[in-house]
């Protein structure tokens, strides 16, 4: 199994606040690596650093063996990384279908920047692809609905559809089930499991719901005050006394 993403010695400070402290994290092809940790542990910050939204204060990040530490986020996206945000980001004034069409067109424009600029409407193939993604994620009924009137959960699914439209190798999801009811959460987990399987993706996920973590993860790292305290197989992590003390113990009632 070759390594897709490899982050070594990552530090991130915001002024005098040290958020990430010497984080090592790697992800093999086909792996599903879940980063857990309580609120404020630095999960979102780690996502920002890995995806290129911000630069680390120190450390290196490589993607497919290539050093991307100083590469902008859009370049990492172009080399096959799709990411979601803790609060879904979609184009609010556009319909659900248009959101996906813009994503498909962005992928096409990366591959062939000058092709099809004289075409006005989206190409038939692009529209068809967007329609099938819409259907696959159960958003067919929201086709003509502006994203701003979609529910929180529907926006998350739409954002996932936009990421799939990029045909990524690696999908990074920041708390994909945050703020969902238990039923919605289970549906979301099943959906993520399905799309990851069907598209042969690697997954990097942050989460603080333990149910989700153990259903989706093949490897788990625990982030605590900006440090990775444990990393390993789900069973190992579950059995780790330190993890029980700092995390599972306190959250047992929630899961």
């Amino acid at each position: 199994m070759s390594t897709l993403l490899d982050a070594r010695g990552i530090f991130k400070d915001y002024g005098r606040i040290k958020v990430l402290k010497n984080v090592d994290l790697d992800l093999g092809e086909g792996e599903r690596h879940v980063v857990i940790g309580p609120n404020g542990a630095g999960k979102t910050t780690l996502f920002k650093v890995l995806s290129g939204e911000t630069r680390p204060s120190a450390g290196t990040i490589s993607l497919n063996g290539r050093d991307v530490t100083h590469e902008a986020g859009f370049m990492r996206t172009r080399s096959g990384v799709g990411r979601s945000f803790q609060v879904a980001r979609v184009f609010l004034e556009m319909t659900a279908l248009d959101n996906i069409i813009v994503a498909v067109e962005a992928r096409e424009a990366t591959r062939r920047p000058w092709a099809g600029l004289l075409r006005l409407s989206a190409a038939r193939t692009v529209a068809d692809e967007a329609e099938s993604l819409l259907a696959a994620l159960g958003l067919a009924a929201a086709r003509e609905t502006p994203a701003e009137t979609l529910s929180h959960g529907d926006r998350k699914r739409l954002e996932l559809a936009m990421n799939l439209a990029l045909r990524p190798k690696l999908l990074m999801l920041d708390e994909p089930t945050a703020g969902m009811s238990p039923t919605d959460r289970q549906a979301a987990v099943n959906l993520i499991d399905k799309v990851v399987r069907e598209n042969g993706l690697s997954l990097l996920l942050t989460e603080h719901d333990m149910g989700v973590v153990f259903q989706l993860g093949t490897r788990i790292s625990v982030l605590h005050y900006g440090e990775v305290v444990v990393s390993g197989l789900p069973a190992e992590v579950r059995a780790n006394p330190l993890v029980r003390e700092i995390y599972l113990g306190r959250n047992a009632g929630h899961a």
Partner: peptide, 21 residues
């Protein structure tokens, strides 16, 4: 056209547009 639609994406949510590549 496609160019105009991507511009609209950039205006609507620059961060999302960025992470569409």
């Amino acid at each position: 056209n496609r160019f105009g639609r991507s511009l609209q994406g950039v205006k609507s949510d620059p961060m999302r547009a960025s992470f569409l590549g």
